[in-house]
Amino acid sequence: MTKDEAGFDNIFLPREAKIIRTSRPTPSEKHFTLQLADRTSLDFVPGQILEVGVMGYGESPIGIASSPTRTDSFDIVVRTVGRVTTAINSRDVGDSLWIRGPLGHGFDMDELRGHDVLIVAGGIGLCPTRSLIQYILDRRDEFGRFTLFYGARDPLQLLFTEDRLEWRRSDAIDYHETVDRADATWTGNVGVIPTLFHKTAHISPDTRVVICGPPVMFKYVLIELDKLGIPRENIFVDLERRMKCGVGKCGHCQINDKYCCIDGPVFTFAKIWELEEAI
């Protein structure tokens, strides 16, 4: 929280973050690397979000796409979907974005540590989980077998080309990717994400699973996890809601009695199961 000049804590006062690098992984997405203008480092856990804004346009909740183990800067990936995200994506190196956060409840790293981990990411859902992926890779010996499933609609939508190249080569991670629809250049898997479960035989019932992607994906992934005998308490879901304040006040992100912005965005599937409005 930021204090104003009169000493009042102000939950709405953003901090300035300088854009130090950008890239355009797809025509609609922009990848930013940011640094706080006061040169302090952002203290967060994977799965937490930022309210990212451009003054005069507004704010949008965005998951942090880099790991806290890589400290001097942090990444976000923003998809152009409306007025605010259009304004954010028109900024470039040297410009500033105004951020609040980290906000929300991220991944409970202690729940994952010491166990096999499977991450299932669909579409832009790879961005918030990238924070977790980097974290695990940076502290590889703290975790068991590490598997990543990633799927996108078509090859042009696949994000983080360099990362994926590295993951494919690496022994530290068992990486599988697929696209719903191939194009002429594509030689990899074709099919929705749940089909990847048939490509690897190494998912133990004790695995901790993280799911992030469009709600349509959840249902089918959960069927596969059920077959593998993975209990609901060990499945973590990263949800998306309309958010305005990010601090549990404005009411927009409510899922029954929970607030996606402070109780989430990461929930255990056991919790979600109790919430009629979750999926």
Partner: peptide, 23 residues
């Protein structure tokens, strides 16, 4: 300019509507 908050109402149609990442 300014950032302003306005009372909102959860009974209105768009209150919990979001444009998802998929568009």
């Amino acid at each position: 300019g300014q950032r302003t908050r306005y009372w909102d109402a959860c009974l209105t149609r768009e209150f919990a509507a979001v444009t998802m990442a998929g568009g």
